[in-house]
């Protein structure tokens, strides 16, 4: 029994180690932060050397990059897209708007904290975060996956009622 457990743990560790080298991000841009992604992907800061590539459908991707402010209309679509993705899936909050509203702190349509509605694994602070900061965020996520700490998707399943209640509060479904 012990042998089986150690084998399973080792298997998961090896898998995590391999999996962190292939992260596909969803090409879904909520706001202005998307403007930092083309330089991140293309020649200068080539994100593909870490195995990070943009993909177009939610079924194929692993990372949900929330690039900038999230208003109510976007949040509804964002939740749908997140639930369409297949676990293990990771959320990266991009820019100060996802942390505490950013410059839209007094807006009537912008939710301030992303982590009330979706489980965020990594935040990248800044307005805008430079491509270097974005890559650093990706590296942090890779490290977390390697250590087995990027468990946002598991948190979402376990605390489903909490997240749903928060979402219903603003979305009025």
């Amino acid at each position: 029994m012990e042998l089986q457990e150690t084998l399973e743990e080792g298997y998961v560790e090896i898998l995590d180690h391999l999996r962190k080298r292939s992260l596909w991000m969803l090409h879904y841009c909520t706001a202005c932060g998307a403007v930092e992604l083309p330089p991140t992907i293309t020649s200068r800061f080539d994100a593909e050397r870490f195995g990070i590539a943009p993909f177009v459908t939610s079924r194929q991707s692993d990372i949900l990059l929330v690039t900038g402010y999230i208003n109510i209309k976007t949040l509804k679509r964002l939740v749908t897209v997140y639930e369409q993705m297949l676990p293990p899936k990771y959320v990266i909050g991009f820019g100060s708007c996802t942390i505490n509203g950013g410059i839209y702190w007094d807006s009537y349509a912008v939710v301030k904290r992303l982590d009330l509605y979706l489980p965020v694994d990594v935040y990248i602070a800044g307005c805008m975060p430079t491509p270097m900061a974005v890559l650093e965020g990706f590296r942090t996520l890779m490290k977390l996956i390697d250590e087995g700490k990027a468990n946002g998707w598991r948190k979402y399943i376990e605390n489903y009622d909490y997240y749903k209640a928060n979402q219903r509060k603003v979305l009025k479904w």
């Binding site: 898998l15 391999l18 999996r19 596909w24 020649s43 080539d46």
Partner: peptide, 22 residues
């Protein structure tokens, strides 16, 4: 494209990642 590019075994990593989805 004048990029460094992914490692040569990147497609294999992609396949492993996809097959290990939960």
């Amino acid at each position: 494209h004048r990029r460094y590019g992914p490692p040569l075994h990147q497609p294999l990593l992609d396949i492993i990642k996809l097959l290990s989805k939960k």
